[in-house]
Computed example of a mutant assay.
Amino acid sequence: MGARLLFVAALTLGVSGLAAAGAAATGAERCAVDDLERRVCLEAPARRLVALSPGATELAFAAGAGERVVAVVAHSDYPARARKLPSVGDYNRIDLEALVGLRPDLVIGWVTGNPEEQLETLESLGTQVFYIEPRTVEGVAGTLKRIGRLAGSEATAEQEAEAFLDGMEKLEARYAERDPVRTFYQVWDAPLMTLNGEHLIGRAIEACGGANVFGDQPRLVPRLDDEAVLEANPEVIITGSDEESMDNDWLGHWRQYPNMAAVAEDNLYTVPADPLVRPTPRFLQGAQSLCERIDQARPGSGAE
């Protein structure tokens, strides 16, 4: 760590100390338990937040704390206002000097995405880090509420969380009685990867009446080969793609296997990637697209 960073850190700690002293007198302490099961407390609602993943950025805005976000990382493109915020690097490599210089009173970190050593350095300098990684529908709602608690925007966060839960409940009810469809969701091509049933997307497949052909795999993100997919013989293959182009060459790879059910029935589909892969309220939108594709592949159902 350079002398300049240490100087900025010392300045930050000094400012934070003054703020904490003032807040202590008001008795406005805010606490929440993060996804590392640590109790994180602020002397007052956060006023300067930094979000270290695109998903964390979306969650902060959805929780009503968007006006308090002072920096994000690359690819934080939703909502549109987030694109105008300064970036402190990529989710897997943070510019600590730039981040500390912004004097945040709360950093929202990503449990398995951000570099552990960098976040530990931030904490050693006195910066509060709130770790998140929601993996269930309830987890997304709970994360919204916890961010709202720390930012003092509880009412907005509560409303957004309840709307999200209600939407997901209605979606699941809509497809609950439909025949299962053997589903393969491809997340990468080289190496070939999918998601098991514990992943949020895996849970969405189940909510849509799909049967994840690799749902029982022990790894959250299993690595596969073509032979494993051929043996599973999915009735539909789905992958995420850029919302603007919706082009994806990965699906074309499977056409060399005309006897596989998904290829024989031409059930090879893309869905917009970002709403589905980011654990935010927009996941409802992504799950709706996923359900529509699975339903297209359901014998006797067709597109609605």
Score class of each variant (00 low, 15 high):
Val107Trp: 05
Ile108Lys: 14
Gly109Met: 09
Val111Asp: 09
Gly113His: 13
Gly113Ser: 08
Asn114Met: 11
Gln118Pro: 03
Leu119Trp: 07
Glu120Arg: 15
Glu123Tyr: 05
Gly126Ile: 04
Gly126Ser: 03
Gly126Trp: 05
Thr127His: 10
Gln128Trp: 03
Phe130Lys: 05
Tyr131Leu: 10
Ile132Asp: 08
Pro134Glu: 09
Thr136Glu: 03
Glu138Val: 02
Leu144Cys: 14
Arg146Val: 09
Ile147Thr: 14
Gly148Lys: 13
Leu150His: 13
Leu150Met: 09
Ala151Lys: 12
Ala151Gln: 06
Ala151Leu: 07
Ser153Glu: 15
Ser153Trp: 08
Ala155Phe: 05
Glu158Leu: 12
Glu158Gln: 09
Gln159Asn: 07
Glu160Trp: 03
Ala161Ser: 14
Ala163Leu: 14
Ala163Glu: 15
Gly167Gln: 02
Gly167Pro: 12
Gly167Lys: 04
Met168Lys: 07
Met168Thr: 14
Arg174His: 07
Arg174Glu: 11
Tyr175Arg: 03
Ala176Arg: 12
Glu177His: 08
Glu177Ser: 15
Trp188Glu: 00
Asp189Cys: 00
Pro191Arg: 00
Thr194Asn: 02
Glu198Ser: 13
Leu200Lys: 00
Ile201Ser: 01
Ala204Asp: 03
Ala207Pro: 01
Gly209Lys: 06
Ala211Ser: 04
Asn212His: 10
Asp216Tyr: 05
Gln217Pro: 00
Gln217Trp: 09
Pro218Val: 10
Arg219Leu: 10
Pro222Cys: 09
Arg223Ser: 15
Leu224Ser: 08
Glu227Leu: 12
Val229Tyr: 04
Glu231Asp: 14
Glu231Leu: 14
Asn233Lys: 12
Asn233Arg: 14
Asn233Met: 06
Val236Ser: 12
Ile238Arg: 10
Ile238Phe: 10
